[in-house]
Amino acid sequence: MAPNRRAINKPMKQKTTNKILIIIPAYNEAETISALLQAVHKENSTWDILVINDASTDATEELARASMIARVITLPINLGIGGAVQTGFKYAVRNGYQVALQLDGDGQHPVSEINKLITMVLEDEADVVIGSRFNKKKNGVKTHFLRRTGIKLFEWFSFMLIRQQITDHTSGFRAYNSRALAFLAENYPTDFPEPEVVILLGKNNFRMKETFTQMLERQGGVSSIPIAKGPYYMFKVLLAMFMAAIRSRIIHNETAS
């Protein structure tokens, strides 16, 4: 275990090369985590992989550690997706990563698309690149009608608020540059954070860009938004989006470089 760890940690201390971190928030993802880590590592072994184990009650932590590929941070209590992902951002900022990508632990996001998102950030096309399940022509993955309607509503609402066209607010497949990471490490909402973050970023003048990514059916686990909780979810998220829009800008001159 020890020599392998060192091999992973070595490139961290070097400079010049782009340090890229893949953040995988995982809550009870024992079914999928091992295969996912293998796949990500196979895709590009220079990426550092960080699993945020959000106080899972199953073997997620053991399996992630046993893979010897990933760094594993275990949270002492369950914080939900927002708190877990933000832990990853904090890690990325403190360890000087140029780019971090957030990838769901359930295998919903195709590993083959990671590079596309990262490349767009590296080429400075945007501060944040969102992998969208929608595309002008065809629909990527079959989503429930209600969920699709909700997403459409987010699109319209967020366009009203920040005048940026984002089609898939619920996507948790996102790549960030270091500036966005520094901002989000300090400001990130807790439950159902994704749509709100779009407003937060737009409001603070971050450039966002979407790219179509073929999404897979989830390999295991359950959605964080069961249909029955839909109305609560919609209300909470729309309120949070609205509040994020009417709150005063957080970024002041020192961070806006």
């Binding site: 020890a2 941070i73 275990t74 949270l75 002492p76 209590i77 914080l79 832990t87 904090k90």
Partner: peptide, 28 residues
């Protein structure tokens, strides 16, 4: 309180990670 709770939990996670790293280094 819940906000502070979150920050604390995140710090515990991050520190625990660093601690394990140092422990491994010591024992190697």
């Amino acid at each position: 309180l819940s906000d502070r709770n979150k920050v604390l939990a995140q710090e515990i996670g991050l520190l625990h990670f660093e601690l394990n790293k140092l422990k491994r280094k010591l024992h190697k």
